[in-house]
């Protein structure tokens, strides 16, 4: 009897140790990576993208305030020059030992055409600021991503898109661009002027120079009703064909097992 009890207790102990080991392994594998040093041996401060997957220690950081300053910087600054927006992209476009170039001082509305429903904005404008600026002139972008921290230049250069049937990514609603090339030239391009450059530079990954201004094809400002509902997974899947056919419906990860979030952005009357 004593022996049987010992065997059972021993087996339970082995199981507990095994389970503890598995949990410990999971915790170890999921641990946060060690933080990078804030500065390197030369005293250069670290840059990291939002996800933390990319980093570098740029020798110089620059934030030009005009096309002329930007052009001069392109000619003189330590290379490689890498423009950075909000650092939201996962791609390794920004890390540099040379110059990290921010467009945070080249922001805001330049001009607009109420008839053609277009607006020209400086490329460093953050999407969070762009919406209110366009609303003030009675316009809105046809599509937006679900995060609004990006700069317009960064969002376009990395092909940022939103969600919705028949809607294009941000670069699809652009009619003209102003670029400052690596040689420091200021170049205007559109569907009609230098079309090859225009179409290439719309998602340019920074390879064609730095975007200075963007002309957006917008639509009249509308009022949108946003609805977020927690629904049963089975009901969500049953409605899926109808949801997929709607232009502004999307779903999110389940807030709890057996459910999903359903979002609906329905255009209402004019603002």
């Amino acid at each position: 009897m004593t022996t049987r009890r010992k065997v059972l207790l021993g087996g339970a102990g082995v199981l507990a140790l095994g389970a503890g080991g598995l949990v410990g392994r999971r915790v170890w594998l999921d641990r946060e990576p060690a933080a990078l040093p804030a500065t390197d041996a030369q005293g250069r401060v670290v840059w990291q993208n939002w996800s933390g997957l990319e980093h570098s220690y740029p020798a110089q950081r620059a934030a030009p305030a005009s096309d002329a300053e930007l052009a001069e910087l392109m000619r003189r600054a330590p290379v490689p020059i890498r423009p950075v927006g909000a650092g939201h992209s996962f791609t390794a476009l920004v890390p540099t030992d040379g110059t990290l170039l921010s467009m945070d001082r080249m922001t805001g509305l330049v001009s607009h055409d109420a008839t053609a429903m277009t607006a020209t904005v400086r490329a460093g404008t953050r999407l969070s600021a762009l919406g209110p600026a366009l609303a003030a002139i009675g316009q809105e972008m046809p599509n937006l991503p679900d995060i609004n921290k990006q700069t317009l230049a960064g969002a376009m250069a990395t092909a940022t898109h939103g969600t919705g049937k028949g809607l294009t990514a941000l670069h699809g609603e652009v009619t003209a661009l102003k670029l400052v090339t690596p040689a420091g030239e200021i170049v205007q391009c559109s569907r009609d002027t230098k079309p090859e450059l225009f179409h290439s530079a719309r998602v340019g990954l920074g390879a064609f120079g730095v975007l200075s201004e963007v002309t957006l094809a917008n639509k009249p400002l509308t009022r949108v009703r946003k609805e977020v509902r927690l629904v049963d997974t089975d009901a969500l899947l049953k409605d899926w064909p109808a949801l997929a056919a709607r232009r502004n419906r999307r779903t999110g990860p389940p807030a709890r097992a057996g459910s999903g979030c359903r979002y609906a952005d329905e255009p209402q009357d004019a603002a």
Binding site: A35, L36, P37, A38, T39, V45, V46, W47, Q48, N49, W50, G52, H55, R61, A62, A63, V84, A86, G87, L100, S102, D104, K149
Partner: peptide
């Protein structure tokens, strides 16, 4: 400078000293 919890490194200010 290096990021903390949900805050990205640099706090989104890439030209800040």
């Amino acid at each position: 400078q290096v990021g903390f919890a949900a805050m990205p490194a640099g706090g989104q200010c890439f030209t800040c000293t």
